[in-house]
Write a protein that binds this DNA or RNA. Structure first.
Lengths: 211, 211
DNA sequence: AGGTGTGAAACGCTTCACAGCG
DNA sequence: CGCTGTGAAGCGTTTCACACCT
């Protein structure tokens, strides 16, 4: 058996796939399954079965020959590897996106991610009540989050303020930012940024319409 | 000089980067630049300069030694490669996401992507007016899109109807789908699916909060 | 039989280094 | 001199094939 590689940095690709595995396992569990084979998992995620086995074997031996992987057990292990077993606080900037993604936010709660507060730059939104939160002014991020100990943030306001807000979020402790603003963010080395650009995504797809 | 690889399939990675280059070029142009070096482009996109030169040289010689790349020319060439030079029709399912992403939709229009229609499954939304479109029932997708000749679609309604709607969209001609539903879609081989799962994206980021 | 864990091979992608051009 | 275009080297990832377990 191979030693679990706690400590050593994991390739981004592997981290990315682990969360797909987690989602797939959630869905298998919801369907009433108790175990899955690497092949079943592979089919649902859309990659090769050998790759899944190799990914999982990085951390120890999670499966049983001739049986497969026990879903509950594997789910907990992956949660642990992704550091989803300890509670975590997330700040959300952009109340519209917050309102429209209630389902996603529900799934976060199931994995120990609690929201710290919701902010917005739009004066019309400030003071509104969304999903149990009162929307605060983006100007108050520093004051509100002082001592809150956030570890990540969602940045979902467009335009030029986005960049400044991102820097404030980093100051307040965010080590990872999900950037939906469409802006390109320049931030310190130690902060991980994941950018989702809807327009870009769709432009990219246009290529495949003819190939 | 290397022959442009029209016809031969391009690696997904390259397609993905080309749209980043396009976005970066748009932004350089907006800042008043007329030309850029591979190094400047690399800095803005966040990758190595050599990789950019190699990507671009796949399609011919676009740059001039000691000068760099002419922005307008390069923009047009990349648009051509991504098949963004001929008008294209896109269907949008999910009026909330539509309302919230006006900026992204504006950028699409600048690149020859016109919207065909906006649909929703939520009875409260049907009949509403959003961004110049009247929201139609998702049940009417077939009738509305018959003969419209869409080539791509955005699927932004959650829950189980998403899968069925995706299949209808494919029937109506969609060869690419931007899937914001959080569901895993099983579709014919020739359809390209790009899935954006906000919750998953954020869970993935949690790993980097501690590494 | 059926499915995992894993070295080794195969593959694709990125970086390096430099010739060549403006 | 500065910057592009590009073969070759280097690196990381995926697939293959099979020993081993239940």
């Amino acid at each position: 058996m191979q030693a679990a590689d706690r400590g050593g940095r994991m390739p981004d690709r592997v981290v990315n796939r682990l969360r797909w595995y987690l989602t797939a396992l959630d869905s298998f569990a919801a369907d009433g399954f108790e175990s899955v084979s690497s092949w079943q998992l592979a089919e649902r995620v859309g990659i090769g079965a050998a790759l899944i086995r190799k990914d999982l074997s990085r951390f120890g031996e999670f499966g049983t020959p001739s049986y497969g992987y026990k879903i509950e057990f594997l789910r907990e292990r992956i949660q642990g590897i992704l550091c989803l077993d300890t509670p975590r606080k997330v700040a959300w900037v952009g109340s519209c996106a917050f309102r429209h993604n209630a389902a996603a936010i529900g799934r976060l709660a199931e994995h120990n991610c609690k929201l710290a507060a919701v902010f917005d730059t739009d004066a019309n939104e400030i003071g509104a009540e969304v999903g149990g939160f009162r929307v605060l002014s983006a100007d108050s991020i520093r004051d509100t989050l002082a001592g809150a100990g956030i570890s990540a943030a969602v940045l979902a306001v467009g335009g030029s303020p986005a960049h400044e807000i991102a820097r404030v979020l980093v100051d307040m402790g965010a080590r990872a930012i999900l950037n939906l603003s469409g802006e390109f963010l320049v931030l310190p080395e130690h902060v991980k940024v994941a950018s989702v650009d809807l327009a870009g995504e769709l432009l990219e797809l246009c290529y495949y319409c003819q190939h």
